[in-house]
């Protein structure tokens, strides 16, 4: 393997590469989503206890998984960006954050829509829902910090440090919330622990999670392209690009 990673890590070369990658990931996401939805709605059997309402897990669980995965990936990019002083990785971290926040929000709302028919309330202070709420705060903090610092270099690095601090804290927060939850609630409500989940249900969930993953990659690449255009507006390669755009050449 002798790939020149540094060549691809400059915005100038990454911009067209990302443009080529986006349709692939978008199509993969669409195909996987159709397959996942088909399994989720047509093949997976009705749940004994929860009836048809359980089918919400086909969006709820993948969204919750992605919200956590994206935070970890974001912190990973942030760490690389800080260690190697690489512009692209910081931009990737910045591009991932809004998508992660959206998935967190989806997980929260669908969790509450699942809770209403199952437990009779829109919200329970369940350990998972509570941690998800705190994760949303962490995402919003990251986005707010980056957007309120004008100098992009400083915004990148400050955001990266915050993401790292956050990722160290996430396990501690999760543990403390779980501890708090067992003290105050006992084990009366145990969300998501399905004792006998049919294999098709699990498969549907996994495929939907993969679909969300591919969607995330596609959207993050789209956003990173926007960020590059906005940041490097005055650089030569962006100017060339826009001249091509005027001439009608699509890139």
């Amino acid at each position: 393997m002798n790939i020149n990673w540094f060549k691809y890590s400059s915005p100038q070369t990454f911009y067209p590469l990302a443009g080529k990658m986006i349709p692939w990931f978008a199509w993969l996401a669409a195909i996987l989503a159709v397959a996942g939805l088909y399994i989720g709605f047509a093949i997976a059997p009705t749940d004994f206890q929860q009836g048809e309402a359980y089918r919400i897990i086909f969006v709820h669980v993948p969204a919750a998984w992605m919200s956590m995965v994206i935070y970890i990936v974001m912190a990973g990019w942030a760490a690389i960006g800080l260690a190697l002083n690489a512009r692209l990785s910081a931009m990737m971290a910045q591009a991932l954050a809004p998508t992660g926040a959206i998935f967190t929000l989806i997980a929260l709302v669908t969790g509450s829509l699942w809770g209403k028919p199952m437990w009779g309330t829109w919200w329970v202070w369940d350990a998972r829902l509570t941690s998800e709420l705190i994760l949303l705060f962490l995402y919003l903090g990251f986005i707010a910090l980056q957007s309120s610092i004008d100098d992009p270099r400083r915004a990148d690095r400050a955001g990266a440090l915050l993401a790292l601090v956050g990722v160290v804290n996430v396990p501690i927060i999760y543990f403390s919330v779980k501890w708090w939850n067992t003290l105050h609630q006992g084990s009366s409500i145990n969300m998501g622990a399905a004792p006998k989940m049919a294999a098709t249900m699990l498969l549907g969930m996994l495929i939907m999670a993969l679909a969300f993953w591919m969607y995330t990659v596609a959207v993050a690449l789209m956003r990173v392209r926007c960020i590059m255009l906005e940041r490097e507006r005055t650089s030569d390669w962006v100017k060339e690009l826009s001249v091509q755009g005027i001439a009608g050449v699509k890139s």
Binding site: G51, A53, T99, K116
Partner: peptide, 21 residues
Amino acid sequence: GGYAFYVWFSFGLTALCMVWE
């Protein structure tokens, strides 16, 4: 199975968020 609102709201919201993004 009587849970139309909850199920379709969840899926609809997810789709809406993605399309909007």
